[in-house]
């Protein structure tokens, strides 16, 4: 499933190592997939008060996200950001540490993507970034500028559902529905990449999403229907 892209921090801009743990190590663990105790984002959050410590990181992110020529420093205060989400332009003034998920949910009232683990384990926050599924909880909002963001709301509407959404309804691939937006987005991405996936592919591509109510049988059948391959519960 989606790996969040983590831009490299330019080495010459490394901040001073803190006495406890060198930021360098923390970043490295974050780059392995943000599953360790020190995700980059949590590091950023944790060091919010220490503006100096995060300045180097943030400039690195800005460089990568906006391809600036000169290193700039964003934050720790709020900065203006611009997003393209579901084909529409949005602007917001956010702290650089705000994740894409929190920007969507808390600031733009796009609440389809859900916050569950908030650290890249469950997939409930899955959105598309330029067509690729990512965990929105593990992408900084500031990084998502300049990319096309697609949330579940942009995949289809109740009156005009995407075939995968219709298939989720037809096969009851949802109970409480809290994991559903993430699964719908991940399934749409799966079908874009593999129009006729075999079951191993379905399992692999949706393996980064978790459901507590146990809707996997319905999801398998839904993906099969949307792929045009009949139904399967195998």
């Amino acid at each position: 499933m989606a790996q969040t892209r983590y831009p490299k921090t330019p080495r010459e801009e490394q901040p001073e190592a803190s006495p406890a743990t060198s930021p360098d190590e923390r970043i490295d663990s974050a780059e392995t997939g943000a599953r360790g105790p020190f995700s980059r984002r949590q590091f950023l959050r944790g060091s919010a008060a220490a503006g100096a410590a995060s300045a180097g990181l943030l400039s690195g992110i800005l460089d990568d996200a906006e391809a600036q020529d000169e290193p700039g420093v964003a934050g720790p205060g709020a900065v203006d950001m611009a997003f393209k989400i579901n084909g529409k332009a949005y602007v917001a003034t956010l702290e650089p540490r705000v994740t894409l998920l929190d920007a969507l949910r808390n600031h733009l009232d796009l609440t389809g993507a859900k916050k569950v683990c908030d650290r890249g384990t469950c997939g409930a926050c899955t959105v598309l970034l330029n067509g690729d599924p990512v965990y929105a909880c593990s992408v900084l909002a500031i990084e998502a500028q300049g990319s096309e963001v697609t949330t579940v709301e942009g995949i289809g509407s109740p009156a005009n559902m995407h075939p995968i959404q219709q298939a989720f309804v037809d096969h009851d691939a949802q109970q409480c529905g809290f994991c559903t937006p993430g699964f719908v987005v991940a399934s749409a991405a799966l079908l874009n990449r593999h129009p006729n996936p075999d079951q191993d592919t379905v399992h692999r591509e949706l393996g980064g999403n978790l459901c507590r109510c146990g809707t996997y049988a319905g999801i398998r059948a839904a993906v099969a229907q949307a792929a045009g391959g009949g139904t399967t519960n195998g």
């Binding site: 949910r105 389809g112 709301e153 995949i155 309804v169 529905g177 559903t180």
Partner: peptide, 21 residues
């Protein structure tokens, strides 16, 4: 019979307590 709130959930429109702003 398909659940009636299926479309609202599958399109991310269902508002849970966590979603109330």
């Amino acid at each position: 019979i398909s659940r009636l709130d299926g479309p609202v959930k599958a399109t991310g429109r269902a508002k849970y307590a966590y979603d109330v702003n």
